[in-house]
Write a protein that binds this DNA or RNA. Structure first.
Length: 271
DNA sequence: CCCCAGGTCGTCA
DNA sequence: TGACGACATGGG
């Protein structure tokens, strides 16, 4: 199947560190575990081509995951407030904020704290092998991300076997509180952040990543070392958490998340 | 062997 | 409130 896309960069979007379960294949295509199925997807100019083990509503799932129906020109215009952002935007053109599975994003970003991408991916893959459903695709076996029911009884020993280390108790606390978190969609962004941060091991940064990458809340802004340095250097302001937070909120408002993500991406992934 | 990783918690002033 | 070490683990 094919879709015409006019402002999309598949590779940048998938390899930017938003999602942890993507494989780049030898033919420049990508294999992605997308909710309930496996897809292999490739971009050739303005076309994306994809195959899956499950074609039911496939196009719809792809459009949703890559957020292809959103008008990004509006975002570019809103964020283009100075030469610094102008450069960021031109570097990041076609780079989309993914709409990932909510449950998966919560656990993935709990694991991400004080951790590196390689280890995060390894732990998540092991979790899927241990608890998720297996799916055959292209003569290989893949594992879906487990549902809540599939992992609600996971033990500390099992978690440790995944290599999540001290984050084991954080995952358990999240699972205990999951019935409240399921309702996050209906909350305002501030309330949603606070609800997530009731979980031990979810602070402002992880909560913001969850809302940005799992719930398409573009008004949260996950600030890490990279972003802090970018902003304090380029805008010549104090490299301090509160100062940077205020700056992002005041400058970019409802689209702070996209602005921050563009900065992260151009600083971290594009040289 | 030491350092670090898309942080957060608990503790002590 | 604010600073600061501890935390599991394996890749570099």
């Amino acid at each position: 199947m094919k879709i015409i896309v006019n402002d999309f960069n598949l590779k940048e979007t998938l390899l930017s560190g938003q999602c942890f379960r993507v494989t780049e294949e030898a033919d420049n295509s990508f294999t992605v575990i997308l909710f309930d199925r496996i897809i292999n997807i490739k971009q050739i100019d303005n076309t994306i081509e994809f195959v899956s083990n499950n074609n039911n509503n496939l196009e719809e799932k792809i459009i949703k995951y890559f957020d292809l129906n959103r008008e990004y020109n509006y975002i570019y215009n809103k964020l283009n407030i100075d030469v610094i952002m102008d450069e960021c935007i031109s570097k990041c053109k076609g780079y989309k904020i993914l709409k990932q599975d909510e449950f998966e994003v919560c656990i993935s970003y709990i694991i991400s704290q004080n951790n590196n991408v390689k280890r995060i991916s390894n732990s998540i893959n092991k979790l899927c092998e241990l608890k998720g459903k297996s799916v055959s695709f292209n003569n290989k076996v893949y594992y879906l991300f487990p549902t809540y029911d599939e992992i609600k009884d996971i033990t500390v020993e099992e978690l440790r076997s995944l290599g999540v280390g001290f984050r084991d108790k954080y995952i358990l606390d999240f699972l205990n509180k999951y019935s409240n978190i399921k309702e996050i969609n209906i909350l305002s962004t501030i309330d949603a952040l606070n609800e997530l941060m009731k979980v031990k091991g979810i602070g402002l940064k992880v909560a913001s990543c969850i809302l940005l990458f799992g719930y398409s809340r573009f008004d949260v802004y996950p600030i890490d070392t990279w972003v802090k340095q970018f902003i304090s250097n380029k805008y010549n302001i104090k490299n301090d958490q509160k100062t940077i937070e205020k700056f992002a909120k005041d400058k970019f408002g409802e689209l702070s998340g996209v602005a921050i993500q563009y900065m992260y991406h151009s600083e971290r992934n594009i040289k």
